[in-house]
Computed example of a mutant assay.
Amino acid sequence: MPIEQWLEAIPPLLVYVIVGLVIGLESLGIPLPGEIVLVTSALLASQHAELSPLWIGVWASAGAIIGDNFGYLIGRRHGPRLFVWMGRKFPKHFGETQLEHARRVFQKRGAWAVFFGRFVALLRILAGPLAGSLHMNYGKFLVANALGGVVWAGGTTAAVYYLGVVAEKWLKGFSYAGLAIAVVAGVAGVFVVKKRLAKAAEKAAGEEVPKEVTEPA
């Protein structure tokens, strides 16, 4: 069953909980489709009055922040063993090449990598565990993590929700097929913007930084 149909079939409170749980587990380091669940829920909220975009954004932000914090603590204590296990279980996501690239980004950009990493699929999963294993200062991590989680979750929810509302209003007299095409086009536009942000973050990560970013605890 598609995610949209599955979310439509359950009560609103359970939708919020699932959004927070999936994003929290993804932020913990488990490769789940957190962004797909968030976008689908926000789109449903634009079509069903009983779903609140505000609560979707709140639960998504909370899941992102809490998940990253647990990921940080796990990475701090069990970083090397964790990455070996993740590499065995999910080689396509956490092979040595991907991990080495992510490590370079964090070593050069530190807190900025945590913030902008929320917009990049691989870094979104690895942000917490990597920051912990590299012993990034927890205060800096916490601030960057919270800001990144709120901007990513809140911004994505608001953008998709209002795109859906506008599309439905403009196309009320047209067929549902036309509405579906417009909504898909709007969501695609959001992903294009997010892809450009991700490329900008990766480009910035490749620049040299004059001083060491990571600090001892």
Rank of each mutant, 00 (worst) to 15 (best):
A205Y: 04
F94C: 12
N145D: 14
A180T: 11
R103C: 02
A64T: 13
G164L: 10
G87P: 01
V143F: 09
A188D: 09
L126C: 09
G24S: 03
K203D: 07
A158V: 15
L13H: 12
S41C: 07
S46R: 10
V183E: 13
G189S: 14
V150Q: 00
G117F: 11
Y72G: 04
Y162S: 14
R76L: 15
A205V: 04
V150F: 07
A131C: 02
A167W: 08
P91G: 11
H93M: 14
S27Q: 09
K211V: 14
R77T: 06
N69K: 02
K89H: 12
V151H: 04
S41A: 15
H48M: 09
Y161H: 14
A144L: 03
H135V: 05
Q98E: 15
M136P: 01
R77P: 00
D68E: 00
P129W: 09
P210K: 03
V160M: 10
Y161D: 03
L163S: 13
N69V: 08
T214K: 09
H78P: 00
A45Y: 03
S175L: 01
G79Q: 06
V151M: 04
I125E: 06
E212A: 14
E208N: 04
A127N: 15
D68R: 01
S52G: 03
L44I: 10
V193S: 08
R103M: 08
E100N: 14
A9F: 02
F119E: 00
G71Y: 14
G164R: 07
P2E: 08
P12E: 11
L28N: 02
V22E: 02
G75E: 07
A64Y: 07
V151L: 08
I3Y: 05
R103P: 00
F94D: 06
A200D: 12
S133Q: 11
Y72K: 06
I23H: 09
Y16N: 10
A102G: 00
H101M: 11
M136L: 13
L32P: 04
S175G: 12
A167K: 07
F141T: 06
A158N: 06
F70A: 15
V84G: 03
V114Q: 07
L147H: 01
I23R: 02
T157F: 04
E8D: 02
P11S: 11
L171G: 03
Q5N: 08
F119M: 00
H78A: 14
Y161V: 04
S27P: 00
I181R: 08
E207V: 10
G149V: 02
A201M: 15
K172I: 05
G57C: 01
R76F: 12
P33D: 02
V15H: 02
E4N: 01
G154A: 03
V105G: 04
I36C: 02
K172H: 12
L7P: 03
L14I: 10
Y16T: 08
E96D: 15
I181C: 03
G71E: 14
L130G: 02
K194R: 10
K108P: 00
E35H: 09
H93T: 13
G57P: 00
E4M: 02
G110T: 10
M1A: 05
A198H: 11
G95R: 06
L82T: 15
F141L: 12
W59C: 15
G57S: 01
G206A: 13
A200T: 10
N145E: 01
A113Q: 07
Y162E: 15
E207P: 00
